[in-house]
Design a protein around this nucleic acid. Structure first.
Lengths: 170, 170
DNA sequence: CTCCTTTTATTTATTGATAAATAAATTTTA
DNA sequence: TAAAATTTATTTATCAATAAATAAAAGGAG
């Protein structure tokens, strides 16, 4: 039994899912609302029935991605010695199960839409805070720097995925 | 005496320079050829006199950026013990003196134009090879992994710059 | 259960804006 | 005055977004 019932997705969620895949693959600018509509099997204007603008759609996808990360990092339990490793594993699993969403975050970094940049930056801080708090709760020492290192490592791994650099970084 | 004479730049180089700044700041898609032209003080179609397409202009800027990196990493001399540190310093200097070009490379990573992606990937390999060779020549052991680590670190630093994350990563 | 009414889901058609690219004309320089 | 540098004028294409129309489904009233 998965957390989500496997009732078929409603139109809005279908659009969010298709958009996540397309935005992750082709980025914000190269993905058209017509692409998203086509992927779902509806007409282009209908997308605007659910999301006022293309940007609003993008931000909605981004929020979902962030929520997933926050959830995972908040629900990884382990001993002080093991927490970093466990969370690292959890992130690797996440990168497989929600590849689109994770790649999307990387590309969002470099999307020069002010609203998107602001959202990404805020989301980044939020994730950092969450990790820092979890590390603190677990009694890890110097949680600030450990959290920074942890996130830096995650970024690097994700970037290697985006770039598809097989030789580099294992 | 700088390596470049300070003869005023010719139009083509003016365009390259302006394009580097704009592409770095606003990315490939959000930078228009009209933006570039305006920055230089010429008309939009005149840009096409020097570069057949917008993409060709972008690739030219990218090539210059890569050449700078290769040059710096090829000309940093130091003892085996000091080489990594010296090259790290050199990169930091580069990030200040050629900020636009370095940031551009980061954003180029996530630009989903096939030709651009291919160029970036190839350039990446080239830089890796260069670093690996320099490390090998200096007698550093396990040069492959040291080179990977070195580049990963550089990526992370550059990314922190792009994201303007002051708190994180020092 | 049927006719009428309202809502929900969706499409067709269109607009307005923006941007890359081309071609022809003009100005400047040597 | 010929060639090089640069502009004006224009084209073509693409896309987000809006508005109006249609079709199907659901919900009540007689």
């Amino acid at each position: 039994m998965s957390s989500k019932e496997d009732t078929p997705l409603n139109r809005k969620d279908q659009i969010l899912k298709a958009a996540a895949a397309l935005f992750a693959e082709k980025g914000y600018y190269k993905t058209t609302t017509a692409d998203v509509a086509r992927a779902v099997g509806v007409t282009q204007p209908y997308v605007f029935h659910f999301f006022k603008t293309k940007e609003a759609l993008y931000l909605a996808v981004l929020q979902k991605a962030k929520d997933i990360i926050l959830y995972v990092f908040s629900h990884t339990e382990a001993s002080m010695e093991q927490l970093q490793v466990s969370m690292g594993r959890a992130f690797e699993v996440l990168l497989k199960s929600h590849r689109n969403e994770m790649l999307l975050i990387m590309t969002a970094f470099t999307t020069p839409e002010p609203a998107i940049r602001d959202y990404v930056r805020a989301g980044f801080d939020e994730v950092y805070e969450r990790v820092r708090i979890e590390f603190t709760k677990a009694g890890i020492e110097d949680p600030e720097n450990q959290a920074k290192e942890f996130i830096g490592c995650g970024l690097l791994i994700t970037m290697a995925e985006v770039l598809q650099l097989p030789k580099l970084f294992l």
